[in-house]
């Protein structure tokens, strides 16, 4: 049981999830945040494999509560680094639903990966925004689509991937979760998914759309754009291949 509680630090359950989000806030460099977002849940799944312990039934509602709480909080977060952290917490908490249903370690690792790679990329995107505007804060700049179309495009697609928009693998992962939950659980997860979408549109409206408030700056390079696009393309392909459509 102790090991399970330690695991819930890594596959975040409220209030232990504060540790992950506290760490993400403390870490200043986006690359460090990106690394934490990618590795942290994988450590949790490793611990879960070691524990070899049946997951108590109350862990699933606890996970849903955590996921719902963080999804709700996401709606009013405007700092993109924090936003990525909160969304990752909301998504990763759902790993417990799969784990409780007896999914094997590989499935869990993949699921956690679907819900950490886009968030890690979001954390990375904080860097070009901070360099140009001093902060990655929704509503501070606005109207990026007018003078930074590449950065806007990459930001938009990454945000869509982060909120499990099909055909990104997060969506198929979510279908797997719905498959193992009961009625009430499935409806809760769907409303959490709805809230993620809402939060993503709020974030995009704060960055991509709206009136331009700053002088034009140089856009991200073609190479960076292709790197992001390529990574997301591969992400979709791998997701489609390994999830087999989710159902």
């Amino acid at each position: 049981m102790t090991l399970l509680l330690i695991t819930s630090l890594f596959l975040p359950l409220f209030p232990l999830s504060i540790v992950l989000n506290g760490a993400l806030t403390t870490l200043r460099h986006p690359a460090a945040r990106c690394a934490v977002l990618l590795l942290w849940p994988q450590l949790g799944i490793g611990l879960l494999s070691i524990a070899q312990h049946a997951i108590p039934s109350y862990f699933v509602p606890w996970a849903l509560l955590t996921s719902g709480l963080y999804a709700l909080r996401l709606l009013t977060v405007r700092d993109m680094g924090r936003w990525a952290g909160l969304l990752a917490t909301s998504g990763l908490a759902l790993t417990w639903a799969l784990a409780a249903a007896g999914a094997d370690s590989m499935d869990l690792r993949l699921f956690a990966f679907w819900f950490s790679l886009p968030h890690a990329l979001m954390a990375l995107l904080v860097l070009p925004l901070t360099r140009r505007f001093g902060a990655a804060y929704a509503g501070l700049q606005g109207g990026l689509i007018g003078h930074l179309p590449r950065l806007s495009g990459v930001l938009t697609v990454t945000a869509l991937a982060a909120v499990a928009t099909p055909p990104f693998p997060g969506f198929f992962g979510l279908l797997r979760v719905l498959h193992v939950l009961d009625w009430a659980g499935a409806v809760t997860v769907l409303f959490i998914w709805l809230t993620w979408g809402w939060a993503a549109t709020k974030l995009l409206q704060g960055f991509v759309f709206g009136a331009e408030r700053m002088e034009s700056d140089t856009d991200i390079g073609r190479a960076s754009t292709l790197a992001f696009a390529g990574m997301l393309g591969v992400f979709i392909a791998v997701g489609l291949y390994s999830t087999g459509g989710g159902l």
């Binding site: 279908l175 719905l178 499935a186 409806v187 769907l190 409303f191 998914w193």
Partner: peptide, 8 residues
């Protein structure tokens, strides 16, 4: 949401 639930 209902369509996803229906599919599942």
């Amino acid at each position: 949401l209902p369509l996803v639930l229906a599919a599942v």
